[in-house]
Computed example of a mutant assay.
Amino acid sequence: MAIPQSDDVRAFSYWLRTGRRLARRSPATIEVKFNPWHDPANGEFTFANSGDYHARRGGGGDFGGGGSSGSYDAPRSPRAAAKPSLVKKQQVSKAKAPDRTSIVPVGLAVRPPVETFRRVTKNGYEFELDSGEQMRRASGTLTKGTEKRNLRGQRVAGGSDRRSTDDGGHYIARRFNGPPDDFNLFPQDANFNRGTYRLLEEQWARAKRAGKKVEIEIVPGFEAGSTRPYEVDVTFWINGRRESIKFPNEKSEKRRGK
């Protein structure tokens, strides 16, 4: 059970805690404890050493066992503590705006234009030609036949990139009804033309004589600016069974299978 305190007891207790005299007040007055540490921005109480100390330096008295001595100054009001001259403004550094002319949006990077090929169908085969009329892909099902020769085309195939050791070879041979057009001719190393490529054509001819279906796809590889392919990539299907071989267009090409 709490023991009622007289006004004198309360005043003495207040003086012990704060070092200040308690003025006479009405019973409804709220007692306010004194804390010398305040936040300078809003005047709220803080823990020791975490705000501004508003008591008189050297004061505060000595809290020995019997009481206190000395005195404290009243704390500054929150308005005084928040004066602009007493509060350091935060330095905000403004970053330099990026040069938008050097920014490339993600997904919008400049890409080289994709070359589109012109498609030509001749003698049942489909040829894809680039802007220089070079054959880039030939495909179709082999048929039997003997096309006429294009002697002029075979002599000039490859132009200035043609080598003295080259033949005017056919991507699709005359015996399979390969067209005589220039796009079906290319500067082909003579050893390659008369060696491994001829052996491959013999394999196709045997399959045709046996009544089998032979489908082909031929893709030459070119170095930039050259009209002479450095390789010929051939894929073929005999009755649906797929095989693929890549031939270098060089004299060093060995006989197929060795």
Score class of each variant (00 low, 15 high):
N249T: 02
D7V: 08
G221D: 11
L151F: 07
I30F: 01
I218G: 02
N191P: 10
A55M: 10
G158H: 00
P98K: 05
F183D: 07
K96N: 09
R175I: 08
F117T: 10
G225V: 11
Q154E: 09
S68V: 14
G168N: 07
K122P: 03
R21Y: 05
V234M: 11
P180Y: 15
A11H: 06
S13C: 07
A190F: 02
P78T: 14
H170D: 15
S139F: 10
Q154Y: 03
L108H: 06
S164A: 12
V92E: 01
D7Y: 13
D161N: 12
S164W: 11
N193W: 00
G59R: 13
F63W: 11
D62L: 08
K144S: 04
E44Y: 04
T143M: 03
I216R: 03
A23R: 07
R194N: 15
Y14P: 00
D99S: 11
R24S: 11
S13I: 13
A55S: 08
K213W: 05
V214C: 02
G59S: 09
F192I: 04
K88F: 09
R119Q: 15
G240M: 08
N123M: 12
E147M: 09
A97K: 12
W15S: 02
D161C: 10
I172L: 13
S164R: 14
G64V: 15
R194Y: 12
P229V: 03
N191T: 15
Q188S: 06
K148C: 01
W204G: 14
G65R: 13
A74K: 04
P4F: 04
A157H: 05
I3C: 06
F236Q: 14
S131H: 10
N193R: 02
I238K: 14
I218V: 15
R76M: 03
R57Y: 12
F127K: 03
E147A: 09
A157P: 00
D99P: 07
M135Y: 03
P98T: 07
K33T: 15
L151T: 06
T29C: 08
F247H: 07
R79P: 07
T116R: 10
A224M: 06
Q90I: 13
H38D: 02
V234P: 04
R255A: 10
R255F: 07
R155C: 04
